[in-house]
């Protein structure tokens, strides 16, 4: 069953009761929340996702609710629980859905050590993964959203999971987090795409989530082999420039953006080195999303 097959009432009952067991790639999160904004956002953003039955295993049990304190009457807040613990301070109530998304990312990066995990967007074409490891503000999510709307499959806009045994990328397709100017850039770039409401004044500025394409969700268990590692950098007004990067520097950038690479010791290094061995590495500067998409589509058309 997928979320879209649940009526609004059924969805709210699950969220208010035993929890909605939502599968995203290899992960099942059991989500509970009494907040109508969470139910609306899940109905919009996760319509195509599989729900597991109540008896099935879930990797995390998360809940987004309102703290029972005096502030709830003045400046209502939302708080995120995972397995009964509060890993974050509460946020304003209108940030409940971004908080759920950030919290789910945290759950994966802090617990799913069966994978090598990197802070990087990743998309796929012709069976090969294009990884975009970069710090916040480099245009990583914007480029990811742009490529996804020009024929690439979304694997993740935030967390790249590499399977330690196969050295292939495991998809974790979830809504793409767009920030600030990127929201209108993607609205103009792909007018048909579904983007949720803009939440302002978060720690990351204004945030809105782009719904993951249905096909990316449907193919959420289909891994991708190594293809390209590209360090993106948005430069206003710049022509697209794709420049070769040595494998050594490519590996170091991946390591710099890793969550648990060192924890895996030699096995982590061997897996990452094998992945880099089988990838081409580049730096990429761009100022125009359409031009950027052309560059990567040409790259994917090659050997």
């Amino acid at each position: 069953m997928i979320v879209a097959e649940l009526s609004n009432r059924e969805l709210e009952q699950r969220l208010n009761g035993p929890g909605l067991r939502l599968r995203t790639g290899p992960v099942v999160a059991r989500i509970q929340s009494p907040l109508p904004s969470i139910a609306r956002a899940i109905a919009l953003q996760y319509a195509d996702y599989a729900t597991e039955d109540e008896a099935s295993f879930s990797d995390f049990r998360v809940r987004v609710g309102r703290p029972r304190n005096l502030r709830r009457w003045l400046r209502p807040q939302a708080q995120f629980f995972v397995d009964g613990n509060l890993p974050f301070t509460p946020l304003p109530l209108d940030q409940a859905f971004p908080m759920l998304e950030w919290g789910l990312n945290w759950c994966v990066s802090a617990h799913c050590h069966q994978f090598l995990i990197f802070h990087a967007a990743v998309v796929e074409k012709t069976g090969r993964a294009l990884i975009l490891p970069a710090p916040p503000g480099s245009g990583k999510s914007t480029l990811c959203a742009g490529l996804v709307n020009r024929g690439w499959r979304l694997l993740s806009d935030e967390l790249t999971l590499i399977d330690l045994a196969s050295c292939e990328v495991v998809p974790l397709p979830r809504p793409v987090s767009l920030k600030n100017a990127s929201i209108d850039v993607i609205r103009a770039f792909a007018p048909a795409v579904t983007i949720g409401p803009t939440v302002r004044d978060t720690t990351k500025g204004s945030v809105a989530h782009m719904r993951a394409p249905s096909e990316s969700v449907r193919r959420g268990m289909e891994t991708a082999r190594p293809g390209w590692i590209v360090l993106p950098r948005y430069e206003a007004g710049s022509a697209a420039r794709l420049t070769s990067l040595s494998k050594g520097r490519g590996l170091m950038h991946m390591a710099d953006n890793a969550f648990n690479y060192s924890a895996h010791g030699r096995r982590g290094f061997e897996c990452l080195a094998q992945f880099v061995d089988r990838s081409s590495c580049y730096e990429f500067a761009y100022g125009d999303l359409e031009e950027a998409a052309c560059v990567f589509n040409d790259l994917a058309a090659g050997p």
């Binding site: 040595s246 590996l251 290094f269």
Partner: peptide, 13 residues
């Protein structure tokens, strides 16, 4: 130690 030798560069773990 584990290492990879790529052209002019060596990466060592």
């Amino acid at each position: 130690l584990a290492w990879r030798d790529w052209d002019c560069e060596v990466v060592v773990f």
